[in-house]
């Protein structure tokens, strides 16, 4: 099963803001740590190296293209 790229949440604004809210009041360093923790928890939950690699490739390409 490839990485899902179409919307999967019925209320996308709510999950987006839930993630944003989690960063409220954190320093940049703490934000970075929070994100790292989230990535690890979610990657472990997904448990599929191929999916995680695919997500990394897409996210990294988008960062590079913003260069």
């Amino acid at each position: 099963m490839p990485l899902r790229r179409d919307p999967s949440f019925s209320d996308p604004d709510r999950i987006y803001n839930t993630i944003i809210d989690a960063h409220r009041g954190l320093s940049d360093a703490e934000s970075l740590s929070l994100n790292a923790g989230l990535v690890l928890l979610l990657a472990n939950h997904i448990g599929d190296e191929g999916i995680v690699r695919e997500a990394i490739a897409i996210a990294r390409a988008s960062v590079m293209s913003m260069g």
Partner: peptide
Amino acid sequence: RAFRDAVLGL
């Protein structure tokens, strides 16, 4: 470093 510290935190 953030990932390393996240592992230590969890």
